[in-house]
Amino acid sequence: MIMKTILLAIALIGAQLTASAQYKKAALQAAGLTCAMCSNATQKALKTLPFVDKIDTDLNTTTFILHFKPNVPVNLDQIKQKVEGAGFSVATLKVTADFDQVKVENDKHIVFGGQTLHFVNVKPQTLQGEKEVTVIDKDFVSAKTYKKYSTQTKMACYATGTMADCCQPGTKPAGKRVYHVTI
């Protein structure tokens, strides 16, 4: 009976910690938008995402500010897929996340919001509060930017985006997908 109580307490604490690790919003700049109808089509596609609460737009910079619903998991690949489905591509995706004493360093993975983040070109630091990270995976940045970051990591997961291709010992990823980010 005592063992069941302890296991239940551990599970509840783990669930609470996972819920507090959360993405708040994202600034998405789309490439290829040439008119208001293009922007409107992209915005309509993004609004169908179950984790998006509301969207603000800046037509001058073709940027969409996606505000996420609290306690709903965010899937960054689905954001990219919606933009591509509307006929465009992601130029940049900057995600604001609420960190709570998260230690990061170059070429290390952390599990955050149910996803594995691989930090590239960062100094060792502890993230606290809302911080913006930029997704630097292929199809989230320009080919030139992607190539630049590829020289700053020796881990194979940057090229493939999957944990199976990563050789960091002791890492227990939340799923196979690895998102590469920088600050």
Rank of each mutant, 00 (worst) to 15 (best):
G129H: 07
L93C: 14
V83P: 11
F112S: 00
L127Y: 06
K176Q: 14
V178Y: 06
N60R: 10
G113E: 02
T116F: 00
Y146S: 09
A86K: 05
L49P: 06
L66H: 01
T145Q: 06
T92A: 03
T62R: 15
V181M: 03
T57C: 13
N40H: 12
D53N: 15
T182W: 02
K54V: 04
T57F: 12
Q16V: 11
T63F: 07
M1Q: 09
K69Q: 02
A36K: 09
P169W: 05
F140W: 08
K138Q: 04
A174D: 04
A156I: 01
D165H: 11
H180Q: 13
Q22V: 06
K123M: 01
G114S: 05
A159S: 15
T126K: 11
Q152T: 00
I110A: 11
K4C: 02
F64E: 01
T61L: 12
L8P: 02
A164N: 15
V90C: 08
T48H: 09
S142V: 10
I2E: 12
S39H: 09
V120C: 06
P70H: 13
L17Q: 10
V181P: 06
H180I: 10
T42W: 06
G170W: 11
M37P: 00
V181H: 04
Q128E: 14
V111T: 12
E132P: 05
I183A: 09
G32N: 06
T160S: 13
S20A: 13
P73E: 02
A15S: 08
E105M: 13
M37D: 08
I6F: 09
I65G: 00
Q22P: 00
K154T: 13
V95H: 01
F112P: 00
K148H: 08
K44H: 10
P73D: 05
T96N: 13
N40D: 11
K82A: 14
K94T: 05
Y179F: 14
T61E: 10
P70M: 10
T18L: 07
S150P: 03
L66V: 00
T162S: 15
Q125T: 13
Q81F: 00
D58P: 06
F119S: 12
E84W: 07
Q125H: 07
C157E: 07
T34Y: 00
T151Q: 05
F119G: 11
Q78G: 02
T134C: 03
V122C: 05
T134F: 01
A45E: 08
Q16R: 12
T96V: 14
K176W: 03
Q152Y: 04
K69R: 08
N121P: 05
L7W: 00
D137V: 00
K144R: 07
A91H: 13
M37L: 05
T18W: 09
Q125A: 13
